[in-house]
Design a protein around this nucleic acid. Structure first.
Length: 539
RNA sequence: GCGGGCGUAGCUCAAUGGUAGAGCGCUAGUCUUCCAAACUAGUUACGAGGGUUCGAUUCCCUUCGCCCGCUCCA
């Protein structure tokens, strides 16, 4: 943590989350378990709202994205193909003398921190035996616990989408470009869970794999690939978009989503990965960061932010891997491409053929295929392109739900101070959630508890609203106390039933007060208009 | 996993080798005509296990968890 003040801010948030029932430590009564967190009543509502908004925006509101709900345990072959079995398991050696940690396969290359003239292998430090640091949780499928039964809890939801790509394509009546969206749990046995729920061992993802034509196919069909500005939203998708346009599009779509739930651009930061940071198969990756209180600061003292979501342009790597490992074709056939290819001038088709060939060959060689075999396969692939066949490329917006929840809470957290006549200052916490994500949409409160007519009317209003939104009825303590309770829960609106609602002023019969969380403003609304007044604000 | 700090009600904080206390919160009741009013009653803790001791929340060990460094990127 950069600064004690920010530490305090984070501690307040943690304390509030427990006090109000947003987040609890998992297995707390048994002393807890590191890296696992539960959501209490308010947290469960908040999280559900966020996931539903994502699902709504990503699938139901779109023509070109469909959903998937895959299992958490899959064939271990999937994780071989994806690279997780290999890259997620570096054997490590700790040196008890110098406290260093080294990859076991590099101890004869890395110099000893204390005696740089010698490598780690030859220095005098006492080393532990090599230990595999596999970030995947292992389990066994079936009753026999031998190596043949080993399976893994998925470390990301994405791979199921690739593995089911063909099934979805064939059953959904979609054509490239289109996407497959999925939310769900993922598991990583992190070395060090950190920063409250930010890095957990069990967490939930919201991932879209959006499949697009390779640029060579777009160019063959449209003559050229559209260029779009590198900043700002490029507008409605166009058929001549290549991967860059689609990537830019999804970055901006995702920012719109965050803005729509109360995280405006100033709370976010962006990181465009450098060529050194990118995985070898990736063309680009933009991270969307949120400036958490625990974030580190840059040289200018600005919060750098922590990653909420990465939008990666992953080329055709994923589907190609699964095609190679499963032996099942992952390519698609494109009528339009086939028709267009025949009309290309030879110069053009040769150029496209060569570029596609080069890309395929580079991928195959990077994947360890022998040069000769790679050249042969790449030739086949490029010939396939000329007949209308290709392996789709993918743009992957991949977000962490739990990180977003924490960001929403941190963003909403605010304190207001009031000093009463006696000079007593009181600090109140207000969670300024966007109404769309707020766990409770409306608090229904009779002005007084000991007047049966008020209570009866308030209960009637509660029952009127309940089918439409999450309501909370409260008649405990004074009205001010109840407002304060709802402020802490982040409830955007409170409806108060008073004597005018009962007709004390006849013209106000069957009206109620709506009190706004953020400024305390009140307005009078007829009970019969309540649903129509509230719904547009919470959707 | 390694090193450093920490662990007392739901929260914030006391005290002690000999019965653990306050404020706030929460629950119930009285009262209350719009922003944590008052009164009454109730509620809950020494992270877990072992040891030293007549007796441990206090001293020692182990373990679990939290925070800070090394790792990581949803």
């Amino acid at each position: 943590m950069a600064d004690p003040k920010e530490n305090v801010q984070m501690e307040k948030i943690v304390s509030l989350c427990k006090r109000r029932g947003f987040i609890f430590q998992s297995s707390e009564i048994y002393g807890g378990i590191n890296g696992f967190w539960d959501y209490g009543p308010l947290g469960a509502e908040l999280k559900r709202n966020v996931k539903e908004l994502w699902w709504h925006a990503m699938t139901r509101q779109r023509e070109d994205v469909v959903g998937l709900e895959a299992t958490i345990i899959m064939s271990p072959a999937i994780w071989k193909a994806s690279g997780h079995v290999d890259t997620f398991s570096d054997p490590m050696i700790d040196c008890k003398t110098c406290k260093g940690r080294f990859r076991a396969d590099q101890t004869d290359e890395i110099p000893c921190p204390q005696k740089p003239s010698k490598c780690v292998n030859d220095c005098h430090g006492e080393k532990t035996a090599p230990r595999a640091f596999n970030l995947m949780f292992q389990t066994f499928v079936g009753p026999v616990q031998d190596d043949s039964a080993i399976a893994y809890l998925r470390p990301e939801t994405a791979q199921a989408i690739f593995a089911q790509f063909k099934n979805v394509l064939e059953t959904s009546r979609q054509k490239v470009p289109f996407g497959i969206a999925q939310t769900g749990k993922a598991f990583r046995n992190e070395v060090t869970p950190r920063n409250y729920t930010f890095r957990s061992r069990e967490f939930e993802q919201m991932e879209l794999e959006f499949f697009i034509k390779p640029d060579e196919a777009v160019e063959a069909i449209h003559g050229s690939v559209a260029s779009v500005p590198t900043t700002g939203h490029p507008g409605e998708p166009q058929s001549n978009w290549g991967w860059q346009a689609w990537h830019q599009y999804w970055v901006e779509e995702r920012v719109r989503f965050y803005e729509g739930i109360g995280l405006n651009r100033t709370t976010l930061a962006f990181h465009r990965q450098t060529p050194e940071e990118l995985a070898h198969y990736a063309r680009a990756c933009v991270d969307i960061l949120f400036k958490f209180p625990f974030s580190k600061r840059d040289e200018q003292g600005e919060l750098k932010g922590e990653e909420l979501e990465g939008i990666a342009a992953r080329s055709d790597f994923d589907l190609s891997q699964h095609a190679r490992f499963s032996g099942k074709p992952m390519g698609v056939f494109d009528d339009e491409l086939r028709a267009a290819w025949g009309k290309l001038p030879k110069e053009k088709s040769d150029d496209l053929w060569r570029r596609y060939y080069d890309n395929r060959k580079r991928y195959l060689e990077k994947s360890g295929v022998a040069p000769e075999a790679a050249a042969k396969q790449a030739t086949e692939d490029a010939n396939g392109l000329a007949k209308g066949q290709y392996v789709p490329h993918v743009i992957e917006p991949s977000a962490g739900v739990d990180r977003l929840i924490l960001a929403l809470i941190a963003n909403a957290y605010s304190e207001t101070s009031k000093t009463d006549e006696k000079g007593k200052t009181e600090t109140n916490v207000v969670l300024r959630f966007h109404p769309r994500v707020a766990p409770i949409k409306v608090g229904v409160l009779p002005l007084l508890k000991n007047k049966p007519e008020l209570v009866a009317k308030a209960l009637a209003v509660r029952d009127l609203l309940r089918p439409w939104m999450n309501v909370y009825y409260d008649d405990g303590g004074s009205i001010g106390r109840r407002y304060a309770r709802q402020d802490e829960a982040g409830t955007p609106f409170c409806v108060t039933i008073d004597f005018d609602s009962l007709g004390e002023k006849p013209e106000l019969l069957n009206t109620v007060t709506i009190r706004h969380r953020d400024d305390g403003r009140q307005e009078r609304v007829a009970i019969s208009d309540l649903v129509n007044w509230l719904l547009p604000q919470i959707r």
